[in-house]
Design a protein around this nucleic acid. Structure first.
Length: 354
DNA sequence: GCGGATCAC
DNA sequence: TATGGTGATCCGC
C-alpha cells in the first residue's frame, strides 16, 4: 500500500525499488504507518473477541453420505457400479458416482455437457421418494445420539454428541456392539472366502472417534450405504473433516487450539462453508488463498469489508465457528454461513477513491 | 422492508 | 434441445 504507484504519466523508467526503499525508511511513525497500526488494532479487537468465545468443550459430528443419490441407485441396480453414472437429467446432474468423476463428471453439471465428457455415461432420473426414505432411516440413528440433531439436507447432518459421550461411559459392551443380519451381510469382491463365515459384528469404544465409527457402521448396517464423518469442537471444522477422508472415512480434530490453528493456516479458504466462487475471486485478488492469509492481511480486511464480513473472515482464520445446532424443524439460520455483498460494498469504496 | 447478490444443497 | 429450485443472509436503498 505504501509502495510507489507508477501508473502516472511521466513516471516510467524510474528506479522504483530505490524510491520505495526511501519511502519505507522514512515511513515509521508517519501517517501511513500509524493508519496501518490503527487498522491492525481494529482487527485485533475483533480477533480477541472471537478468541474469547472459542469453545472447545463440545463434540460435534458432521455426517455426510458418500455420493448419496448415486450410491442409492448403485445399491438397487448393482450393474451400475462398474459404469460411469450420474443422477439427474440432461439439463442438470445432482451427483455422479466415482467412475464418472474420473471423466470430470460432477454434481451441478448439465447432463448434456457430461455426455460430451463421457459418451457412455448412464444418466439415471431422480427417485426423490426413495432418497427421502433412506434419509429417514439415517435420521432415526442420529436421533439416538442427539435428539436435537440438525439435518442440513437428505444426506447431511450435524450431531452434538457431547451429552452422549457422558452417558456412554456407563454403556456395557453389549450396548456398544452391532452386527449385520445374515441376509444383509454382503460379500465384497475383495473379501476372501473366510470373510463370508466371519462374524460381521463390531464393538466400539468410548472416544469421539469410536462414536463416529459406530454411526457409520450402523448407517451401513441399515442402508448398505457408506458415509463419511468429521469430528470437531465446532461445525466449521466438523464439516471440513467429513470431506477430508471421503469416501467411507472420517477425520478427528482434537479440541486443541494450537493444532487447530496449525491445520487452518494452510487450508484453502474456498473449501470453508460460506466462501463461494465470488468471495474466492475477491480474496484471491488480494492474494489471500489460505485461511492463514486472512490473519496476515487483517489490517487490509478491516479497511475493505464490513465488521460482519471481517468477523466471518477472522473466525475462519482462527478455526472458530458456532457449536450450537439449531434443530432441523425450527432452523432459521446457520451461524457458520455468511455472505456479504462484495460488489455493492466496493462500488461505494471505489467511488470514493476516484 | 425490499430487491439484488451470494452461497449451499 | 439443453446450465435447477429453494431458502437463507447481508447489503444498500
Amino acid at each position: 500500500r505504501m509502495a510507489l504507484n507508477d501508473n502516472k504519466a511521466g513516471m516510467q523508467g524510474l528506479d522504483k525499488d530505490k524510491i520505495n526503499q526511501i519511502i519505507m525508511d522514512n515511513t515509521v511513525g508517519s501517517r501511513f504507518y500509524m493508519n496501518e497500526q490503527k487498522r491492525e488494532m481494529q482487527a485485533d479487537d475483533l480477533l480477541t473477541e472471537i478468541e474469547k468465545q472459542r469453545d472447545l468443550t463440545r463434540t460435534i459430528i458432521h455426517i455426510d453420505m458418500d455420493a448419496f443419490y448415486a450410491s442409492v441407485e448403485e445399491r438397487d441396480r448393482p450393474e451400475l457400479k462398474t459404469k460411469p453414472m450420474a443422477v439427474g437429467g440432461m439439463d442438470m446432474l445432482s451427483t455422479s458416482n466415482y467412475v464418472a468423476r474420473k471423466y470430470g463428471v460432477r454434481a451441478a453439471m448439465p447432463g448434456f455437457i457430461a455426455k460430451k465428457l463421457c459418451p457412455e455415461l448412464v444418466i439415471v432420473p431422480l427417485n426423490f421418494d426413495k432418497y427421502k426414505q433412506v434419509s429417514k432411516q439415517t435420521q432415526e440413528i442420529f436421533a439416538e445420539y442427539d435428539a436435537n440433531f440438525s439435518g442440513m439436507s437428505l444426506d447431511e447432518a450435524f450431531l452434538d454428541i457431547t451429552d452422549h459421550l457422558q452417558k456412554r461411559i456407563l454403556y456395557d459392551e453389549e450396548e456398544r456392539t452391532f452386527h449385520y443380519h445374515h441376509s444383509l451381510a454382503v460379500k465384497q469382491p475383495q473379501d476372501s472366502d473366510s470373510d463370508l463365515s466371519r462374524n460381521v459384528s463390531e464393538t466400539f469404544g468410548f472416544s469421539p472417534e469410536d462414536v463416529a465409527n459406530e454411526l457409520r457402521f450402523r448407517i451401513h448396517q441399515k442402508t448398505l450405504l457408506t458415509a463419511s464423518a468429521g469430528i470437531a469442537p465446532n461445525t466449521m471444522l466438523a464439516k471440513i473433516g467429513s470431506d477430508l477422508n471421503k469416501p467411507n472415512g472420517q477425520t478427528y480434530f482434537k479440541p486443541n487450539r494450537e493444532e487447530i490453528l496449525k491445520f487452518v493456516k494452510d487450508f484453502p479458504v474456498r473449501k470453508v462453508n460460506g466462501v463461494g466462487k465470488v468471495t474466492e475471486q475477491l480474496l484471491s485478488a488480494l492474494d489471500i488463498k489460505k485461511c492463514g492469509d486472512l490473519y496476515h492481511r487483517r489490517g487490509d480486511l478491516v479497511l475493505l469489508f464490513s465488521e460482519i464480513s471481517c468477523s466471518f473472515f477472522f473466525r475462519i482464520s482462527l478455526g472458530c465457528s458456532s457449536n450450537v445446532l439449531e434443530s432441523s424443524g425450527e432452523r432459521k439460520s446457520i451461524s457458520t454461513e455468511r455472505t456479504f455483498n462484495a460488489i455493492s460494498e466496493h462500488k461505494e469504496l471505489f467511488a470514493k477513491l476516484e
